[in-house]
Design a protein around this nucleic acid. Structure first.
Lengths: 219, 219
DNA sequence: GCGATGCTAACTGTTGACAATCGAGCATGT
DNA sequence: ACATGCTCGATTGTCAACAGTTAGCATCGC
């Protein structure tokens, strides 16, 4: 807690609180008192205030006016909501990407795809997840729609957020990398096949949601 | 500027600034100095700070760390971006609405539709616009996806925001109410026809975007 | 004359204190 | 015993001042 070069102070506070909430150290419904937190972090209430606002924006906390801020509980339904939105915006994204992507863009997309496959192949789940997200982000960027990309980023962070809750165990159980879907998406974009790309994205998410929600991993 | 019962102080400040920006009194690129604004509104820098953060979230201003806040310029491209996203999430919304809507829900949807048509019929553009938005919001609510609804609300406010800029004149020129599309959407949902509903939403937005962007309103 | 360096002014990020507001608990009246 | 009103404590919303940083400019050296 010493250096803190430039990375907005309240951002680091938000990170710390986010970790505590997701790790279960702060139970759902707990009160987040500005004064307490300010003292605990050794700062004033200003940055704490901003951090709480950020958490509220992310859905991790809820702010009752004149009452205080409380940590909200996240369930599987939340993750389902996020996936529905991701599917919708990514289908739109690939349709635009098909029209706008240059050859260099397509090359970059293939590169991202290879990274995902390589990471999965050598069993490096951590980087595989990151590369996975980067791949999705890549074609969202190719859409040329800044707001769409920002939206994806928001939903992506929500995804990793929700994955870190109780769902984490369950999600990691029956997980099989959706690499083939990724390849289908990339190929369809390269072939300038909008419908095919959108369908591939749809199949990707149907597959993922089935893995996560449909059946209990009781075997 | 006296009463201000409870409606968050910074919200009224944000409203005032938003108006000034959209009315052109604050040119794009202008600096929004916290101290100045605080003095102008007769408050401290705290609420002003929150108001500027809100404007930044809305995309009306951009915040450079340690530099200040500047009003950003909005173009037709922004409105196009918003419509792309609205179409994507509303297509997803109607698909969900088809599965979840009760008979009472469908009745409410038809009611909203009638309000839109009535307002358009008697030439009351102002309420027609509001009713129009309410209709769209209605089926987004029926999706049962809270995040999706929140997203729609955000995009809806962005729409009215962008409509108030220079686009306002242009938009109001060649405008023809897309009532038939509304009816198609409502009917498809009532018929539990997911593909039809999504297609209707798609056609609606294709029509709207054509009206707005495709051709200059040069007669 | 031109580039680098140090200064200055302005603005943001942060701080600790003050005031307004809300909920809980208690006293009081019925 | 129950409802009602009041007071008190706790907590947020707000404020004015301080410190750190950045951009712009003048000065100095080459």
């Amino acid at each position: 807690m010493t250096a803190l070069t430039h990375k907005q102070l309240w951002e680091t506070i938000a990170d710390a609180l986010r970790d505590e909430i997701l790790d279960g150290h702060l139970a759902a419904g707990s009160r987040l008192v500005e004064t307490e937190l300010a003292e605990r972090f050794g700062v004033s209430r200003g940055p704490v205030r901003d951090a709480l606002a950020e958490l509220a924006r992310e859905g991790l906390a809820v702010d009752l006016p004149r009452r205080g801020t409380f940590v909200s509980s996240l369930t599987e339904a939340d993750l389902d909501e996020v996936y529905v939105i991701r599917r919708a915006i990514e289908e739109a994204a690939v349709r635009l990407a098909v029209e706008r992507a240059s050859e260099a863009d397509l090359e970059g997309l293939r590169g991202a795809l290879l990274e995902v496959e390589a990471a999965y192949a050598r069993g490096d789940l951590a980087t595989a997840w990151e590369a996975d997200m980067s791949f999705h982000r890549a074609y969202c960027r190719l859409s040329g729609n800044g707001r769409l990309l920002a939206l994806f980023d928001e939903m992506a962070s929500q995804t990793v957020l929700l994955m870190r809750t109780a769902l984490a165990t369950r999600a990691s159980l029956g997980w099989t990398p959706p690499v083939e879907y990724h390849r289908r998406i990339a190929d369809a974009i390269a072939a300038r096949d909008a419908d095919g790309a959108a369908a591939a994205v749809g199949d990707h998410y149907r597959y993922t949601e089935d893995r996560l929600f449909a059946s209990e991993p009781s075997g």
